[in-house]
Simulated scan of single mutants.
Amino acid sequence: MSEKISRFLAIAAMIVLSACTSSTTTPQGQGDQTSANQAQQVILDENSKIVTGQTLYVPVYSYIYHDDQKRLFNLATTLSIRNTDLANPIIITCVRYYDSEGQLVQQYLENPIQLAALASTDFFISTSDNTGGLGANFIVDWVAQTNVSEPIIEAVMIGTGFQQGISYISPAKVIQNQTNYTCSSAP
């Protein structure tokens, strides 16, 4: 009888273990790419009706200091833009990344993109890219052709090393209202 139980347990274990397969997928924003290329591009012109919009400042950190400012702790950054409106799209007109001195490092969009209701997109900066410095930031412009609820725009920074890991979120701050379909003026 114990032989039957042992066989049954062995077969059951093989079935359970064979069902536990590891699946590796590549996240959408990996490798300094952006999932924005999967969002719908839109063509706006001076006749496009814009009802509301904002320019937002999002503080990010390429690294932080530790060990009495003698060592750098590099961080990966994901800028997340989420349309919170239940029914209407928003249009992201600009996403620009600036370094600690206020110099433009990268402009992420060639053309505006539209985010459907409740859709989101992200932009990624890898851990090895610390060109932004301690005072890096994103400037994000969005508009809508109807009244919408404001999107949630925030940066998520994460780093692992020295037998520790840290992560935190940095929310966006509105710096001006936007009623134009073009990028806000900035250096």
Rank of each mutant, 00 (worst) to 15 (best):
T84P: 01
Q107G: 11
G133R: 05
Y61D: 11
R7H: 04
T78R: 08
Q114G: 05
D141N: 14
R71D: 09
S167R: 09
L104Q: 08
N88H: 14
N130R: 06
C183Q: 02
Q103H: 13
V105R: 11
G161C: 03
S126H: 06
M1W: 11
L56Q: 15
S18Y: 12
C94H: 12
S23T: 13
D68G: 00
V156W: 12
E46N: 14
Q106L: 08
T127L: 11
Q145C: 04
C183Y: 04
N74T: 06
S128D: 14
S100D: 05
A12N: 13
S185E: 14
S18K: 00
G135T: 01
I15V: 15
P59Y: 07
S126I: 04
D68W: 05
S170F: 01
K49E: 15
I15S: 02
T24W: 13
Q40L: 12
I5L: 13
D141S: 02
A116C: 07
T84R: 03
V60Y: 02
R7L: 10
S23D: 03
G29A: 15
S2D: 14
I92H: 01
A186L: 14
G165I: 09
A76L: 04
T52D: 04
Y168S: 05
S18M: 14
S80L: 15
F138T: 08
S167C: 05
L134P: 02
N111V: 05
L9V: 09
I92V: 15
I43A: 11
V143H: 00
I125A: 08
P151L: 04
H66A: 00
I169F: 02
A117D: 09
Y108H: 12
Q114W: 01
F138L: 07
A13L: 10
N83Q: 06
N177K: 13
G53L: 00
N111S: 14
A117G: 05
